[in-house]
Design a protein around this nucleic acid. Structure first.
Lengths: 245, 245
DNA sequence: CAATGCGTTCCGTGCCACGGAACCCCGACC
DNA sequence: GGTCGGGGTTCCGTGGCACGGAACGCATTG
């Protein structure tokens, strides 16, 4: 039952709803009755909310989601530096972590002249198609790099890197410079520059600034991104205040 | 099983972990074996993560929590205005909604000289002890006001309003001015000013600026808070872009 | 009116959630 | 070194309940 209930919750990706009973049943490949039963229970629990137009993910998920410690602690450390970076650039600032072969976006400050980006907090994109992902990959160690190079590379745009040799080359450059660049690999018309954030010698996250391509001036952005990432790394090496603020 | 599993997840409030098996069992009043079984399954699902020092809430909750639509849509609309307000004041900016008799904090931008506040995103505080809560209450309609006034009022500090007559008076003032003030009711040494955010004639959220008391100048803050809240209300009356950004 | 599609209820069946007891491991203490 | 206690893990009999097909109720459409 438990596994099925999470299947149901996942059916609400990526928008959180609204879904009708029949939609949920179909997405989960569950009998209608089972889906109904699960939705009813999840609604009682608060993990799902029912409105006139259908079911939505519910507040209880929001409340628990906010206290997931990894992401919470990382956000806590990173947000001041991200705000500084945002104030310096007024462009979209992202913080992401690696989970398997994906970037999971942990925080995002949208730029003033925001353009549509495929990223969202809590969302995932392939490591190999994004600045953050490549920065994380470059410092993830030889085993993971090997693994990634040994698989078909995913493509988000015609510019996405799908040639393992190109990727290997890019990784080398990232390792040399401590910075990752991305041009239209995740989004046509978009570019970004990313730097890894370290904790106890490992790259636990990466920080990026995303820009429309015509406005992309790497040499101008690089020092600010690097400084902010370094600031976060330093903040992460200090102990956290105990308990909730 | 489903209900018990959410009991287990709630055992991780408010910090998200670390908890040992025995802690979880005790908090949930469940037999150790049951708690172990549930934790093991939740770990397999990704809702809980196990580390050397114990169990934590897991990433899957984070990912789903980010797409809970009410909070997501409200954040999306409010964040630009909150950033503007933050840039104008450099103080802590909150956005909260009402759930039952609580404020649930939906977003928070921490001030540069942050001081410890009891609020956190995804957390709850009593309506009657906070600026946001009082703003929400004032526009929640007579039934809820009656209900709240008819119950013992909760206290967070010695300054918290626990006299129904005082609260009623405060509500009247908020309704007259369209602004709620709070002085040391939620936190000794803290103050804030809050304004409601409307959507289709109802106060669906409220926005506040929180300040250490010595720095609290309501007349200076009021126009900015009110303008930002109005901006959010306006943004909420416009249709949203469909799907994830 | 009939058909269709939506959600909801009913209930027989067999799956599995439950949890006490036993077990294993490790660290602390005598 | 042996014992104890506390942490977690495994085992398995039992009865609780998850499951889902079928039936039902309602609204809409042709």
């Amino acid at each position: 039952m438990l596994e099925k209930s999470w299947l149901v919750l996942d059916a609400f990706r990526p928008t959180g709803g609204p879904l009708r009973l029949a939609d949920v049943a179909e997405r989960c490949h569950l009998p209608k009755t089972t889906a109904f039963r699960l939705l009813t229970e999840l609604t009682a629990i608060g993990a799902v909310a029912r409105r006139q137009d259908g079911y939505y993910l519910g507040r209880r998920l929001f409340e628990l989601g906010c206290i997931v410690p990894l992401e919470r602690d990382l956000r806590h450390a990173a947000l001041p530096f991200m705000h500084d970076l945002y104030e310096a650039t007024h462009e979209t600032v992202h913080l992401g972590v690696r989970d398997g072969l994906d970037v999971v976006y942990v925080e995002k400050i949208r730029g003033q002249e925001a353009f549509a980006l495929p990223s969202r907090v809590g969302g995932r994109l392939p490591l190999t198609c994004t600045g953050i992902g490549k920065a994380l990959l470059a410092y993830a160690g030889p085993d993971l790099i090997e693994e990634v190079l040994g698989r078909p590379l995913r493509r988000l745009t015609p510019h996405s890197i799908v040639d393992p040799r190109r990727l290997e080359e890019a990784i080398g450059q990232i390792q040399a410079a401590g910075l990752a660049y991305e041009r239209e690999e995740a989004q046509i018309g978009g570019a970004c520059i990313a730097a890894p954030v370290f904790h106890e010698g490992a790259a636990v996250a990466a920080l990026s600034v995303s820009v429309p391509l015509p406005r992309f001036h790497p040499t101008r952005l690089a020092p600010a991104v690097k400084a902010a990432a370094l600031g976060i790394s330093r903040a992460l090496s200090r102990p956290f205040p105990a308990g909730p603020v």
